[in-house]
Amino acid sequence: MAEVLLAVVVDMVAGREDDGQRFEDDVLARLGKHGGTLERRLRTADAGSEVHLLRFTSRAGYEAFLADPDRLALRDKVGHAAPAARVLEVKDV
């Protein structure tokens, strides 16, 4: 079972940064349920973007996180204020 390391670039919707940050708080709180951990969370000075470094104990855990119905419901609830995320699978070098 190989770990999965991800760098996630999250772009908030302009004018809805507070909603986007609350959404990210709620979603990131669900990581542990799926064997994931937040190693770093960085925010730009203008609060328009965040960078997350996430680690999952397995690919199955990551896939379960993506399919988590509670996570998906949170995304539906935030609607148009949901941030856009670019996920990069990375490795230590």
Score class of each variant (00 low, 15 high):
Ala60Val: 04
Glu3Arg: 10
Leu53Ala: 10
Phe65Asp: 04
Ala73Arg: 08
Val90Phe: 10
Leu42Ala: 11
Gly20Ser: 12
His80Gly: 08
Leu5Gly: 00
Glu50Asp: 09
Leu6Ile: 03
Leu53Val: 13
Leu54Asn: 03
Val93Asp: 05
Leu54Lys: 03
Ala2Ser: 13
Leu72Ser: 01
Asp26His: 06
Leu42Val: 04
Arg43Phe: 01
Val27Gly: 05
Ala81Met: 03
Thr57Arg: 15
Ala29Asp: 14
Ala82Thr: 07
Asp25Leu: 07
Leu54Ser: 04
Arg55Ser: 06
Val4Cys: 06
Val27Glu: 08
Ala45Leu: 15
Val51Trp: 10
His34Cys: 04
Arg41Lys: 12
Arg22Gln: 06
Gln21Gly: 06
Lys77Leu: 11
Asp46Gln: 11
Phe56Ser: 10
Gln21Tyr: 05
Asp26Ile: 01
Arg16Asn: 12
Val51Ile: 13
Ala47Thr: 02
Leu31Cys: 03
Glu89Leu: 09
Arg55Phe: 07
Asp68Val: 04
Val13Phe: 10
Ala29Gln: 13
Ala64Ile: 05
Lys91Met: 14
Arg41Tyr: 00
His80Asp: 10
Ala82Ile: 05
Gly20Ile: 12
Leu42Asp: 09
Leu6Asp: 00
Arg43Asp: 02
Val9Lys: 14
Gly20Arg: 10
Arg59Leu: 14
Val9Leu: 15
Val93Asn: 06
Val90Arg: 08
Ala85Phe: 01
Leu38Ile: 08
Thr44Arg: 15
Arg86Ala: 14
Arg43Ala: 12
Gly20His: 09
Leu31Trp: 04
Gly79Ser: 14
Leu66Phe: 03
Val87Leu: 15
Leu88Ile: 01
Gln21Leu: 13
Asp92Val: 08
Val78Leu: 11
Asp92Pro: 08
Asp25Asn: 13
Glu24Tyr: 00
Asp25His: 11
Arg40Ser: 05
Tyr62Gly: 06
Val4Met: 11
Arg86Ser: 14
Val87Trp: 05
Arg41Ser: 04
Glu3Val: 00
Glu17His: 09
Phe56Met: 13
Lys91Ala: 15
Ala67His: 07
Ala84Phe: 05
Ala84Thr: 10
Gly20Met: 15
Val51Phe: 14
Leu28Ile: 04
Gly32Lys: 04
Ala60Glu: 04
Arg59Cys: 09
Leu42Glu: 11
Ala29Leu: 10
Ala73Met: 05
Ala84Leu: 14
Leu88Pro: 00
Phe56Leu: 14
Asp11Lys: 03
Val93Cys: 08
Asp70Cys: 06
Val51Leu: 15
Arg59Met: 12
Thr57Gln: 13
Gly48Lys: 09
Leu5Thr: 07
Leu28His: 00
Glu17Ser: 12
Tyr62Ser: 08
Leu66Gly: 08
Arg40Trp: 02
Val90Glu: 09
Lys77Phe: 04
Phe65Leu: 12
Glu39Gln: 12
Glu17Thr: 10
Leu6Ala: 02
Ala29Met: 09
Arg55Lys: 14
Val10Trp: 02
Arg30Glu: 05
Gly32Tyr: 04
His52Ala: 08
Arg43Leu: 09
Gly48Ser: 10
His34Asn: 05
Asp19Ile: 03
Ala67Arg: 14
